[in-house]
């Protein structure tokens, strides 16, 4: 494993898998209520901590799963694509993205979920995304240097801090569980008044 990387199946099957994987992803996003901009926005008024709960549950699940599959020799982590780290662009991009997220109330994936369940604001966010991407592309010549600055390549936290993967996995899990506990208390405190 990863099967595709090891030539177990070809490109046609890969695309069929894309559809299936996306389908299940979209299913759970909708089931969790992430197609509702109101629900998503509630995260940032501390009335509805669904975003935090779903995101970190997903991250922790996949993180623990990939750790153990690797530890048992079933998954070659070196052949799983790790998103590259570019420190400054990702700080700037993150800040900008966060602003857009709270204004629109939906993220790129959940805007598709919202649109799929008939929400017009989902369509509006999707259209806006295209506009923003177009703008970025047209402005690229001026952004190119910054965009490519401070690269760390396919860095990982354990490698960066010189600790074992197990250490990082443990710390992140504990932090996430603490966050869930805190989130429930915040919801109980602010959620009753509701947005």
């Amino acid at each position: 494993m990863p099967f595709y990387e090891n030539g177990v199946f070809g490109d046609g099957a890969a695309l069929a898998l894309a559809l299936l994987i996306g389908f299940v992803f979209g299913w759970f996003l909708e089931r969790g209520g992430l197609g509702s901009a109101r629900k998503l926005a509630g995260q940032f008024y501390l009335t509805d901590m669904t975003v935090l709960k779903v995101m970190f549950s997903a991250i922790v699940t996949a993180m623990l799963g990939s750790f153990w599959l690797a530890r048992l020799g079933l998954l070659d982590l070196a052949r799983v694509f790790v998103p590259a780290t570019y420190v400054l662009p990702q700080i700037a991009g993150g800040l900008i993205f966060g602003v857009g997220f709270v204004v629109g109330g939906l993220c790129p994936g959940t805007s598709c979920v919202a649109a799929a369940t008939g929400r017009k604001d989902g369509f509006a966010v999707m259209a806006g995304m295209c506009a923003g991407i177009l703008l970025f592309g047209l402005a690229f010549p001026w952004l190119e240097t910054f965009y490519a600055s401070t690269p760390l390549g396919a860095a990982t936290l354990p490698a960066l801090f010189g600790v074992s993967r197990g250490t990082v996995v443990f710390c992140i899990t504990v932090l996430a569980l603490a966050a869930f506990f805190g989130a429930s208390r915040l919801e109980r405190r602010f959620g009753a008044s509701g947005a």
């Binding site: 993150g94 900008i96 805007s111 509006a124």
Partner: peptide, 26 residues
């Protein structure tokens, strides 16, 4: 209009960061 504007800002930010909540964060 707010949704569109938010989407535009997000699109720009996602390009700069080379990802969004699904691809980069998750």
């Amino acid at each position: 209009l707010l949704a569109f504007a938010g989407g535009a800002v997000m699109g720009f930010g996602a390009k700069l960061a080379r990802g969004c909540t699904s691809g980069l964060a998750l």
